[in-house]
Simulated scan of single mutants.
Amino acid sequence: MRVILQRSGKASVTVEGEVTGSIEKGYVLLVGITHDDTEQDADYIAKKVSGLRLWEDEEGKMNHSIEEVDGAILSVSQFTLYGDVKKGRRPSFIEAARPDKAEPIWNYFNNALRSQGLVVETGIFGAMMEVDLMNDGPVTIIIESK
Rank of each mutant, 00 (worst) to 15 (best):
D43W: 10
Y44Q: 11
Y44V: 02
I45P: 01
A46T: 13
K47A: 11
V49Y: 13
L52W: 04
R53I: 05
R53L: 07
R53D: 10
W55A: 00
E56W: 13
N63M: 00
H64Y: 13
S65F: 02
I66G: 00
E67Y: 07
V69Q: 01
I73W: 02
V76R: 07
V76M: 03
F79W: 04
F79G: 01
G83L: 01
V85Q: 07
V85F: 12
K86H: 14
K87I: 13
G88V: 10
R89E: 13
S92V: 10
F93Q: 01
I94L: 08
P99S: 14
P99C: 06
D100K: 11
K101N: 01
E103L: 08
E103H: 08
I105F: 13
W106E: 01
W106V: 09
N107W: 05
Y108W: 04
Y108A: 00
F109A: 00
N110M: 11
A112M: 04
L113K: 05
L113A: 05
R114M: 11
R114G: 06
S115M: 10
G117S: 11
L118S: 00
L118F: 03
V120M: 04
T122M: 06
G123Y: 11
G123L: 15
G126K: 02
G126H: 03
A127F: 12
A127N: 08
A127C: 09
M129H: 10
M129S: 11
E130N: 15
V131M: 08
D132F: 14
L133M: 14
L133Y: 12
N135K: 02
D136Y: 02
